[in-house]
Nucleic acid binder design. Structure first.
Lengths: 147, 147
DNA sequence: CCCATGTCAGGTCCACTGACATCA
DNA sequence: CTGATGTCAGTGGACCTGACATGG
């Protein structure tokens, strides 16, 4: 049989496990978003826009962990599909504040429900307290790395 | 200033935090491996081979979360650079067991030390007990997702 | 026969880097 | 001038599908 199943002794490495978990999660979310014609970055952008209307291209890029160049392409696609809208000219500076359209809000609702199910499945073996601990520890990992 | 810094209220989502942590970690490890002329997938392959000599292409692919086609390309590169070696003919079946060369072992030692530093920095705000908890919870997240 | 493996090919997707103009 | 932004262009990595030969 295969020597690599689960539990190479690399699972003593937090980094390896982190990568694995993120990878499995990405695949799972991808799978539920694909039938909706959406990928993770597009979904993340819509979710961010719902919570913080008027975010600019660069701000969305930072919020979804991609470059502003990549986000530019994403936004062009979302705009083409009528899910978001941006003013033709910048009201101030070069920043173009982006808004969800009614259609975008509708699609997001569907996608959001699907993604929430995945996340619930991921947390199904964790109680509320552990979820909070997990978030706390991940935040501290991020802080540590950015030092 | 930017409205997106740290702490959009999405950090109540484990999934979002997980993606962010993995993203920051990837960037950090990339940064230390780049000067060594290595990327994360190559490093992961060498690390796996050090712990489990003789892994095949397909097994390495599963262990690093890429397809066997992608791993095939990676191995060709590592072989060309003299970091790994594979027999010309399969000793049994079609499986070609891969081995680290002395050079590969040497490069891995350097890379491994660099990566370990990053991982230590990531865990700097966690005590031993918390690290174990984090691993445990990540493992349960993976199990939950694969159900 | 069925399945896993190693490998090659073609096409696609996605994110990145580089570069440039614009504006506070 | 500096720094942030929006955007265009090119590049690279990893994916997928398909294919085929080989071996348990």
């Amino acid at each position: 049989m295969s020597q690599v199943e689960r539990g190479v002794d690399l699972d003593s490495s937090v980094g390896y496990l982190l990568k694995q978990t993120a990878s499995v999660l990405q695949v799972a979310i991808d799978a539920v978003l694909r039938p909706l014609g959406m990928n993770v970055t597009q979904y993340s952008s819509l979710e961010l826009l719902a919570q913080r209307p008027g975010l600019s291209n660069s701000e969305l890029a930072r919020g979804t962990f991609v470059t502003r160049q990549s986000m530019n392409v994403v936004l062009q696609g979302l705009e083409r599909d009528g899910l978001v809208s941006r003013p033709v000219v910048a009201p101030v500076g070069r920043v173009l504040p982006t808004q969800l359209t009614p259609l975008g809000r509708e699609r997001l609702a569907t996608a959001s429900a699907a993604v929430r199910k995945v996340e619930d499945r991921m947390r199904s073996d964790l109680d509320t307290n552990e979820s909070a601990q997990l978030r706390s520890m991940l935040n501290r990992c991020i802080d540590g790395l950015q030092r």
